[in-house]
Design a protein around this nucleic acid. Structure first.
Length: 198
DNA sequence: ATACCGATTAACT
DNA sequence: GTTAATCGGTATA
């Protein structure tokens, strides 16, 4: 049973819960090269204006992060370190800039296309920059709708046991002071995934 | 107009 | 464990 993740999933108030429940959901992109999909294995929650690690910290609002202020279920894609396109799922209602960064996927469909996009024999999709390359996600897709746009999220009914869930502090946000310690990183234990998916 | 820097990655030692 | 690559976004003036 494959269903599009509904608007009501994204528009809930608790971004941590949404980040955790996004594990196991499937990201789908379909461009000229064909359908490519992956199971979400790692996420991080970014809790809006009160979160010093968020691009919306203190109510900061610019052309780049404008999608964060849109309705839940939009994509927020931005360029990091001049190279990497990072993909976020916008949550909460319009005007509340919560988001979830997707940090890892397990490749599911279109493996050869993704491998070609990554330009090598190995297919690494375990980091926020590598998975967007594999899926063909770019900053120009920022602001698109995950229910009707070129990037979609599906529920394939994939579930995993609670003991496989790891929770810890977020990566690369040392500048956020005490907020860097918040347990907002969620992932499926890598040891529970086949080695090619790590 | 200018300066600083990042929600990272890959290739090193 | 360390570090170079790389450039748009943002703040400052």
């Amino acid at each position: 049973m494959k269903t599009i993740v509904p608007r009501s999933f994204y528009e809930r108030p608790d971004v941590e819960t949404i980040a955790r429940e996004l594990l196991g959901k499937v990201i789908v992109t379909e461009f000229d090269a064909g359908r490519t999909t992956g199971i979400i294995t790692e996420t991080e929650a970014y809790a809006g204006v009160l979160d010093k690690a968020s691009h919306a910290s203190g109510g900061r609002r610019t052309a780049r992060n404008e999608p964060m202020y849109g309705r839940g279920g939009l994509a927020y894609v931005y360029l990091c370190y001049g190279i990497h396109h990072l993909f976020n799922v916008v949550t909460n209602v319009k005007g509340v800039p919560h988001a979830v960064l997707v940090r890892g996927i397990r490749p599911l469909e279109g493996m050869e296309v993704m491998r070609a996009r990554r330009g090598g024999t190995k297919l690494t999709t375990s980091g926020p920059g590598t998975l967007t390359t594999a899926l063909g996600i770019r900053t120009e897709l920022s602001g698109s709708d995950l229910l009707t746009g070129p990037i979609r999220l599906e529920d394939h009914g994939i579930r995993f046991p609670p003991e496989d869930l790891l929770v810890g502090p977020r990566i690369g946000v040392d500048y956020a002071g005490e907020d860097a310690l918040l347990p907002y990183r969620f992932r499926i234990a890598p040891s529970r995934l086949p080695s090619w998916a790590r």
